[in-house]
């Protein structure tokens, strides 16, 4: 039998369907139930929440990846500081040999650098009394920042491993003691300040800050820090401010 005819046959047979069955369907046709409302089951809600969590985690991880960690930031000056030691050694040789060209050139460079520096000295020194001090010596730069105790300790450790012992002690004293006492001696024209860094255990370390930027560690009679003129001026400003406040 042809396909069409088979269909026709079925249609004919459907005419003999049970009347009750057809009546039931007719009743439904007249009173349709309508389309069922779509349910929003819990698993869909859970899936949506899970998707949001994944997105949030992804953005958090991306944030961590794209922004360098604070430790990484601190590593950068450490590399520079190694260079600064070498440069300071070279500068010592140049200054001691009286190379004026080198000194003038460096003075200009230092001035330019200081101009580009963020305003640290005045604002940070104001908080000297109440906060710990983080001092990091970069290339011809002295930074004084008010930070938390925890960070100050971390910085102290970093400095210990990177610099000479004398400088570390000087910095450590500044960090732990939280203040600096100075004494001006005008009789000696080379010496501008006698610096007494008082430590936590009341031990006093005596240093002399010379006009030409040399900082002598008095007790050992040796140079512990060579300062550029601008750096020297910065320190000078810090000390004066603090001295006045102490008064």
């Amino acid at each position: 039998m042809k396909k069409e005819n088979r269909g026709e046959l079925i249609h004919d047979e459907l005419n003999l369907l049970d009347e009750d069955m057809i009546a039931q369907t007719d009743n439904l046709r007249r009173n349709p139930v309508g389309r069922k409302k779509r349910k929003f089951p819990l698993y869909r809600l859970a899936a949506a929440a899970a998707s949001l969590c994944v997105l949030a985690t992804g953005s958090y991880v991306w944030g961590i990846i794209s922004n360098p960690l604070p430790e990484e930031k601190d590593n950068a000056p450490a590399t520079k500081s190694e260079e600064s030691v070498l440069e300071s050694q070279f500068a010592t040789e140049e200054i001691s040999s009286g190379n004026m060209d080198y000194i003038e050139e460096n003075e200009e460079d230092a001035k330019n650098e200081l101009e580009s520096m963020p305003p640290t000295s005045s604002s940070d020194v104001c908080q000297l009394k109440n906060n710990y001090i983080r001092v990091s010596v970069l290339t011809h730069e002295l930074w004084v920042n008010a930070v938390s105790e925890e960070e100050a300790l971390q910085q102290a450790v970093t400095i210990d491993t990177k610099y000479k012992q004398d400088i570390d002690k000087l910095v450590e004293n500044m960090c732990t003691a939280g203040y600096v006492s100075t004494q001006k001696v005008s009789a000696d024209k080379d010496v501008v300040y006698h610096l007494f860094f008082e430590k936590a255990d009341k031990e006093v370390v005596h240093c002399r800050l010379l006009e030409d930027g040399y900082l002598y560690y008095e007790d050992r009679s040796e140079i512990c820090l060579i300062l550029d003129k601008d750096i020297y001026d910065t320190i000078n400003g810090i000390i004066e401010t603090h001295w006045e406040r102490k008064e």
Partner: peptide, 26 residues
């Protein structure tokens, strides 16, 4: 044949049966 179709439709769930009759009978 009609009785066989009837029997088959009786075994279907009501929803399916209504749909089938609606589509192919009505």
């Amino acid at each position: 044949l009609a009785k066989a179709i009837n029997r088959c439709l009786c075994t279907l769930p009501q929803e399916t049966r209504n749909l089938f009759i609606g589509r192919y009978y009505s």
